[in-house]
Write a protein that binds this DNA or RNA. Structure first.
Length: 467
RNA sequence: GACCCCAUCGUCUAGUCAGGUCUAGGACACCAGAUUUUCAUUCUGGCAACGCGGGUUCGAAUCCCGCUGGGGUCACCA
């Protein structure tokens, strides 16, 4: 039987990093078994669902190359079907009307808390005659959950888990206003979409027991489950915004590569021996949902950065340049000149091995694209002291007349000769050159910078600091 | 609190299902060194873990029990 998986986020915010991992695992599980992977937007909460959030999810998935194989299902659009099923459950005796008011429910909760007992709806309207219903109260429809025995899940990652049915109460299927709840909608949609394998966060584990009971009441085939552990922040707590658990969109903005994020997320809770750098193709081949660990993993920014640096270096210069051009435009506020563009392209190889993120890369690329006079950072200003300037002056004069090819290698040879004949350590001259030419203390190899800048620009920049 | 889950270096993990090959392997981070005009890359080396207590066994990181610690769930949210 061909398997069908789904990623089912609710559009109430950005695409969470944990959601991205869930999507990735669903994608991988489907691909590994030659099945299909679908997307369902769970937008039944009309108060909190927004079109912006839907876009954020779609854009994030696209960026990560995790778009579904088929038409996206919007849960709210299926509400009529959900209502029909609720009523059929009513007709078959698997559900009933409950006339409890919010206040009454609140009172029951309070009592339970006082008595130190776990709160559970007591099913008081299970057998009560609707004739006793208080006037002007719209009833909800509750599921008549089995009271005895146990419900079992044979989970791909959690193993076999049993829960006593008497710990599960009669959940609401249809609200007083007639709208379906998540618990009902999810079951109906999973069935209608032909979902065979449900991979989701283990915060859904208890939901699954309830949903299985629904599948049973409906006499529908029960899907297989894989509840993956949640992602935690560096402090071991559930990942939240304050951990830097940004939306996927933010990671993109901050200069992360989708390959790096996917690779990182994949290795959280899952491993294939000692392999660290894993391509999508390998992942597809190696991924087995049963190999996912059962304990929560902490989010480690350093490791993500390391992976990102790796993928950055592996990316073709021209692809990197394309992205950096956009970032530079927002950084400088104007489009690049032709000359700047040329320098950027030539400098990319030296630039990319010095950055872990694209934003960092763009920032470092500034030395090639900003117009003179370039800003000199404070530390560099200190380097450009009296003696250093004197050396720079004679070196500049020397360079102007030096009969050399303006190439990194010739420049280096010439500079070394100059330093030697002036009894100057290269370690004295190079920092001054770097400071004057880039305005910084750190840059790609200075002779490469001179080469890329060209003779005229190099001399002019030196002139700027010598004035 | 009730129910459920989890537990190997600081972090992600391999090893656990089929006990010995584990003086516990890899990666990130960190430290030291090599290369080097800076930084980075690369390379070499180092630090660093089986939570605790009982069992079972000739032998336990691996199996069992307890404890401790951590997490998740307990909505007319999803």
């Amino acid at each position: 039987m061909s398997i069908v998986t789904r990623f089912a986020p609710s559009p109430t915010g950005f695409l969470h990093i944990g959601g991205a991992r869930t999507a990735l695992f669903n994608w991988l599980h489907a691909r590994h078994h030659g099945g299909r992977y679908m997307l369902r937007i769970e937008d039944t909460d009309r108060q909190r669902s927004t079109p912006e959030a839907v876009d954020a999810i779609l854009n994030g998935l696209q960026w990560l190359d995790l778009l579904p194989d088929e038409q996206t299902v919007y849960q709210f659009a299926q509400r009529q079907r959900h209502q029909d099923i609720a009523h059929s459950l009513l007709a078959s005796g698997h559900a009933y009307h409950c006339y409890c008011s919010q206040a009454e429910l609140e009172e029951m909760r309070r009592q339970a808390r006082l008595a130190g007992r776990p709160w559970r709806y007591d099913g008081r309207w299970r057998h009560r005659d609707p004739a006793e219903a208080p006037p002007h109260v719209n009833p909800v429809i509750r599921f008549k959950a089995p009271q005895e025995g146990t419900t079992m899940i044979e989970d791909w990652v959690q193993g076999t888990i049993n829960v006593a049915n008497n710990t599960l109460d009669d959940m609401i299927l249809l609200r007083a206003d007639g709208t379906p709840t998540y618990m009902l909608s999810a079951v109906v949609d999973d069935h209608d979409m032909g979902i065979t394998d449900i991979i989701r966060g283990d915060d859904h584990l208890t939901n699954s027991f309830r949903q299985i009971q629904l599948f049973q009441a409906l006499d529908w085939p029960i899907p297989r489950y894989g509840h993956i552990p949640l992602l935690h922040g560096a402090d071991g707590r559930k990942l939240s915004k304050r951990h830097g658990a940004l939306g996927v969109e933010e990671y993109r903005k901050n200069g992360y590569l989708p390959e790096a994020l996917n690779n990182y997320l994949l290795r959280l809770g899952w491993a294939h021996g000692d392999d660290e750098i894993i391509s999508r193709q390998q992942a597809e081949q190696w991924f087995d949902i049963r190999d996912v660990g059962r304990s929560a993993a902490r989010f480690d920014q350093d490791k993500l950065d390391h992976l990102n640096g790796h993928y950055l270096r592996a990316t073709a210069d021209k692809d990197l340049t394309r992205d950096v051009i956009e970032r530079l435009r927002t950084l400088t506020g104007e489009p690049l000149t032709k000359t700047a563009l040329m320098r950027l392209e030539r400098g990319m190889a030296g630039l990319k091995m010095r950055a872990k993120r694209l934003d960092e890369l763009a920032e470092n690329a500034l030395i090639y694209v900003i117009p003179r006079p370039i800003p000199i950072h404070s530390q560099a200003t200190k380097t450009l002291n009296g003696p250093a300037l004197a050396h720079l002056k004679t070196f500049k004069d020397h360079l102007e007349k030096a009969p050399i090819d303006w190439s990194a290698s010739d420049l280096e040879a010439e500079t070394r000769n100059f330093a030697q004949s002036n009894r100057l350590a290269l370690g004295k001259l190079a920092p001054a050159l770097r400071a004057g030419l880039t305005g910084r203390m750190v840059s790609p190899p200075i002779f490469e910078v001179m080469d890329i800048l060209g003779k005229a620009e190099t001399l002019c920049r030196l002139g700027d600091v010598l004035e």
